Simulated assay, not measured.
Amino acid sequence: MIGTGFIYTVAGLMFAAFAVLSATDRTNPKRLGNAAFYAVLAISFLLGGRLGDVGNGVLVLALVAIAGSGAMGRGGRATTSLDARRDDAARLGNRIFLPALIIPAAALGGTVLFRAVPSLVDPKQATLVALTCGVLIALIAMEAWFRPRLATPLAEGLRVMDAIGWAAVLPQMLASLGAVFALAGVGDVVGGLAGHAIPDNSLIGAVLAYTLGMALFTMIMGNAFAAFPVMAAAIGIPLLVRHYGGDPAVVAAIGMLSGFCGTLMTPMAANFNLVPAALLDLKDKNAVIRAQVPTALPLLAVNIGLLYWLGFR
């Protein structure tokens, strides 16, 4: 049965290729640091299941040491010239985005198909397996259409990863932090504090505490996936679902959307808000956040209303 092993293998092979390309990139004075970082990621994906908790902990510390020591830099490996890209863009127009649409289409179609054939793919991982297949299909389609050199997609992927740097692994790190917080009982502590603050039998008070708490914790932790275990254990499950009879699917979905509103407003979400500013060479490093706040706040208000009206019908 196809499951996470397939996903981790594809990701591990990709990072292994990045490590090799980084080690041979003469344009990057810090190529060995980059190669080591991607090699550690490759080992984590390919062998993490065999290394145990201690082994994976050592890999995480190695990633932190490499990134924190400033050992990583940006390479300048050329794949295609600027003139060639302009010519392709002018010739293809909006059709150039068609391969990108293969990924969500394959993810949606594959999820439906795989769940209909549970003996083929682990039903719990159907969406992730379909997404991975979509990426591979899109890659094959682009190779057949544009006919670049075989190494070009990997080189372009490496260029983007070098630009993002260590922030690329921040979502996984913060999601793991959320799981640690949940196991440590932080949700119970927050739930106790919220219980004293929320008026008795006040549904709107519980909804506000949950949605605003998701946004606030996301701003603090930088990732809604890290905030969700805490707020779900504190308010979402005990109050909204069990006490007020809320629909678990609606509570979970709108809670995550509320957390994403917090993502738009925090520098802790470095890969979303600081990296784009760096890539665009913006003088104001918080320019992306400033542009997103007018969207985030009304969207958060809409999510509060949606949860109140749709979650308890």
Results as ranks from 00 to 15, higher is better:
Q292C: 08
D247F: 07
F225K: 01
V302N: 05
R159H: 07
M1V: 13
F217N: 07
A215N: 09
F45D: 00
G12N: 02
M1T: 14
P238F: 03
A116K: 10
A194H: 01
L63S: 04
V112Q: 10
Y38H: 09
V293T: 10
A141S: 14
L280Y: 06
T80N: 11
V20M: 05
A17Y: 05
M173W: 13
L216I: 15
G187S: 02
R290F: 10
G68T: 04
L92M: 11
V230R: 02
N94D: 12
A71W: 13
T295M: 15
A232W: 15
V135K: 12
R290A: 11
A184P: 08
A224R: 01
P29A: 00
L32V: 14
A197N: 03
A130V: 08
L59N: 10
G236H: 01
W145V: 05
M173N: 10
R290M: 09
A227R: 00
A89W: 09
A36Q: 02
L139C: 14
G236V: 01
A16P: 07
G157R: 04
A296H: 05
M265W: 08
K285H: 10
M221V: 15
P148T: 03
M265G: 07
L300Q: 02
C261A: 14
S69V: 05
A234N: 01
L310K: 08
M214E: 14
L174I: 13
A215G: 09
R313E: 11
N273C: 03
L113A: 12
F228G: 00
T9R: 14
V64G: 07
V288Y: 08
A233C: 01
A100S: 12
K285S: 11
S258Y: 09
D247Y: 07
R149G: 15
A65H: 06
R159A: 09
N56R: 03
I204L: 15
F45Y: 11
L61P: 05
D25L: 08
F272M: 15
D162C: 04
P99W: 01
M173H: 10
P171M: 06
A206P: 06
P298V: 06
W145Q: 10
L150T: 11
Y308I: 06
V64S: 07
M72V: 12
A194Y: 02
R26A: 14
I140G: 14
F97T: 09
L128K: 13
V293P: 04
G70P: 05
P294Y: 01
A277Q: 00
R290W: 09
A39M: 07
H243A: 15
F114V: 02
A168V: 15
G305Q: 06
A287V: 04
G68L: 02
M214H: 10
A227K: 01
M14Y: 15
I304C: 04
A90S: 12
G311D: 03
L47D: 02
P294I: 09
G222T: 04
R91F: 05
V117C: 06
F228W: 07
L208H: 05
L128Y: 11
D83V: 12
G262K: 04
D25S: 10
P99D: 02
L183N: 14
A151T: 12
P123R: 02
G73S: 08
V129L: 00
G3H: 10
L46G: 02
M173C: 13
G205H: 03
F37Y: 13
V189C: 03
C133H: 06
L280Q: 09
V54K: 08
V189I: 13
P229K: 00
E156T: 11
